[in-house]
Design a protein around this nucleic acid. Sequence first.
RNA 1: GGGGUUGUAGCUCAGUCGGCUAGAGCGCAGCAUUCACAUUGCUGAGGUCGGGGGUUCAAGUCCCUCCAGCCCCACCA
Length: 870
Amino acid sequence: MRLPKAYEPKKYESGIYALWEKSGAFAPKEHPSTALGAGGAKDVYSLVAPPPNANADLHIGYALTMAIEDALVRYHRMTGKSTLFVPGADHAGFETWVVYEKKLSSEGKSRFDFSREELYKQVWDFVELNKHNLQSQIRAMGASVDWSRFLYTLDNKVVAQAYDTFKKMWDEELIYRGQRIVNYCTFHGTSFADIEVVHEQEDTKLWHIAYPLVEQGSPSTELGVKEVVIATTRPETKLGQAALMVHPDDERYKHLIGKLVNQPLVPGSPIPIIADEYVEREFGTGVVTVTPGHDPNDFEVAKRHNLPATELITTEGKMSENVPETFRGLPLTEARDIVVQALEKGGYLRKVEGYTHSIGKCYRCGTPIEPLLREQWFIKMRPLADKATSALKANKIRFYPASKKDQTIRYLEEVRDWNISRQIAWGIPIPAFVNTADESDWIFDTRVDREEIDVDGKTYKRDPDVFDTWFSSGHWPLVTLDYPEGEDFKRFYPLSLMETGGEILYQWVARMIMLGLYHTGEVPFKDVYIHGYVMAEDGAKMSKSLGNVVDPLKLIDEYGSDALRAGLLTGRRPAVNQGYHPAKIKAARNFANKLWNIARYTEGVLEGRTLLQGATLQAETIADHWILNKSSIISEEVAKAMEAYRISEAYELVYYFVWHDFADWYVEASKLQPNNAVLANVLETSLKIAHPFLPFVTETIWQTLAWEQDSLLIIQPWPTAVVADAGKAAEFEKLKNIITEIRWLKALSGTKVERIHYQGSANAPYADLIAKLAGVGQVSQAPEGYAGGVPLSAENADWRLDIDPAAVSERLAAKHAEHNALISSLQNRLANQDYLDKAPTELVEETKAQLAEAQTNLTHLENIQKTLKL
RNA sequence: GGGGUUGUAGCUCAGUCGGCUAGAGCGCAGCAUUCACAUUGCUGAGGUCGGGGGUUCAAGUCCCUCCAGCCCCACCA
């Protein structure tokens, strides 16, 4: 025998993968109907894998992505479509940056030890190494991706596309320079991404400061209100406010909206009291100051109310020129105490209380992060988003689950302009230069390898910023397909599917839709499938800091790649987070082994297939008809489930069919009544329908049994229906019921059933099968007038078991009660006139039939009990 | 704070158009087993479908409400 006793994945996986890769099966096949201009539905299935971050090993969530996508691709490939599945890797801007800094810090170094160029080179090398690892990990997962099309987000064509879009938008005035608050470390002299800021709880104070109302004989003065008190944790920023702000519905302050107040310590610069819903009435006094230059939220408020943003703190961490003279140039560390003293002296300080809140700090030096204004690049989103919204509302894209579509639409309707510049070295440099003599004179130029360029006798300096990674990866469907001239673009755009995690629905999916529409006028993909997270076993999120991260490669090593894939898919719905469960992976491993052993049995029976020579597929026994009928139905059901993205259900259908229909019933029955052609056929069907979920074991079996010369399972056609007699199939179903009933009676009586008698010669052909499958010694025809033993259920009453009636009496009584309960429930339903009137007639008829059947069963049972004198 | 999602057997989850006498896998209990597989087979016990209300002839499924968990995004002057 060529197949050893148990399936050992490690022995075969890498060889099988190499075989597929070498065969060219991963590349889309040429097909006339997929050519450009063919019109109508294209016979293709295309998707691009979300490029994993090339800054670490693949995590288990990516294994799930691959399990889903590869199952779909393999299924569609077998249905005869030309499939395109493109792999890639992401340079992952900020995240890689943070990962690399951690690496540096573990070596006692930091980013400030290197020049920008040195650093870029180092990160590049670091990512190259990871990219290589990722590729072998994706191979280990069995993904049938086309490696010749592998794309990295810093590859030239990606950069070129980003520049092209930037230029096009620049020309169309969709790009503009705008202000935005950034996280600035005054010690390091650089800004940080939100994820680089560490938040720490700190004990501080809440200072209550009075703002005197400007006297104008206003009603408020008449009411005796002379001042408004605010509460703040940052008194030093109160040296130049844009406004005070209250909640529009706050009864305490409603009458003050629109009034002016004087600023303490800032003579002669009255500011208005405005109303904005952003204010939380419960906090402090319910009145807050608006500091647009140093608070992101205030900046948004100021934009809404057309208030100016003033710089109060410089990049060096000192009070700026815009504060009253006495405070200018003060370092922040001293400014607070001095301002508080001045406030107290001036009589403005009303109260000081203790307060604990979280403060953003530089993750390296611990200096509090200053939110400072900086000029950034922005994209005007409204025109792009509106197009996307109407495409979605016109159902150009189907979402799985459907609720994600509404979520995306809501995001698009509320989208704000997109800040696409980032203040790090790692990424695609922004192709823009600024006139050294005129800060407002920006030009587009792609010579980003140069610090300075001369144009028309003027010197321009390169913008040191890079693009947000989502700006370039938002072009993914375009760049992977070689937009606009590539053959792939013509054949495969729009993609059939975009499959990804829900957390990047806005960041990535929405942007791809907008950019795809922007360039081509067409949506970039037809379907969106969102998967949930793979959580830790206890349902918590997997994270390195919690130490509950599970390494997919270790699981592949232990259980096999197939087991990991199928185990992750089991019982999963789209967009729902679910824990990782070793038991599911184990179950899948056992299933792979089950397939293996069915194959092993078949191999033995067929003696290396020699027995099949010249044999045609012809169902003989009722078991043959039954299994062929089942296999036809199941192939179709699995296909339907896959088309509807009910992937886990599809897998479970395969699992049940192979294990419980094929192995448990058919293989056992065929041992008595062999039909080698049927056995081989059903094994082939099983391998085919299991292939999308368990590609390695199924292909290994296919190769080892060598059904045909140089034949690959991966490109076999999906099974089509086999002709079988449904009536004979139903007969076998009845036989199964008899056998199950005998086993049940046997088990519950705890005694051996020595003999079964049957009445009528029609049952004779099944005697041996029943003896074997039910495990009964002797099955023979009953003598004339035989009334011994216990008859089976009403339907199978011509079978009688030689068994001690006392052993089953308790069980029969319980059964009796069950019948009665059912009968009364059915009777109640039929006694309801509304039910008879309003329910569909078929249903009422069905209920009547059920009642009749239940009553027959009951009568039968009572007869048995009477006969047995129970 | 905004958004999303989940609650069904001891555990993990299915349950599509409302027709349910609510399913599966694991676990558990009992039994079996030279004959492909102990990564096995057979049989069984386990449920007021989170609580309350409503719509309907009929609700696990639709609506309202409450409770509990989890996730994403944004963050507190």
